[in-house]
C-alpha cells in the first residue's frame, strides 16, 4: 500500500481534481485554489520519486521547496490581478470576462 504507485496515483488524483476544479469553478479564486491542488500533485510526485527512485534524496525536496516558492509568487500575482478584475468588472466570475473573443 505504501508503495510508489500509491503516491503516484494520489498525485494524479490531486492533479485531476485540480484540473476539474479549474474547469468548473467560475470563481477566479476557486480556480486559483484548484491550480494549487495541481501544483501539490506535482510536489507529491517529486517527493515520491525522491523517496523511492532517485539516487540523491535531496533533489526532490529542493524541487518541492521551490514549487512552494513559485506557488507563493503565483498566488500573489494572481490575487492582485483578481482584485483588479474585481474592481473593473465588479465580479470575480470568470464568465463575466468575455469581452475578448473571436
Amino acid at each position: 500500500m505504501n508503495s510508489l504507485t500509491t503516491y503516484l496515483f494520489l498525485a494524479a488524483l490531486l492533479f485531476s481534481l485540480g484540473i476539474f476544479g479549474v474547469f468548473q469553478r467560475r470563481s477566479l479564486i476557486g480556480m486559483l485554489i484548484a491550480i494549487e491542488l495541481m501544483l501539490n500533485g506535482a510536489s507529491i510526485n517529486f517527493m515520491a520519486f525522491n523517496r523511492f527512485l532517485a539516487p540523491d534524496p535531496i533533489v526532490g525536496q529542493i524541487y518541492t521547496l521551490f514549487i512552494m516558492g513559485i506557488a507563493a509568487a503565483e498566488a500573489a500575482i494572481a490575487l492582485s490581478i483578481i482584485v483588479a478584475v474585481f474592481r473593473r468588472l465588479g465580479s470575480i466570475n470568470i464568465e463575466r470576462a468575455q469581452e475578448l473573443r473571436g
Binding site: 484540473i19 479549474v22 477566479l28 480556480m31 486559483l32 491550480i35 495541481m38 503565483e74 500575482i77 494572481a78 490581478i81 483578481i82 483588479a84 478584475v85 473593473r88 468588472l89 470568470i94 470576462a97 469581452e99 475578448l100
Partner: peptide
C-alpha cells in the same frame, strides 16, 4: 480588457 487579458493569460499560464 487589459485585466481580462491578464487573468486569462495567468490562468492558462498557471495551468
Amino acid at each position: 480588457i487589459d485585466v481580462e487579458a491578464g487573468i486569462k493569460y495567468l490562468m492558462v499560464g498557471a495551468c
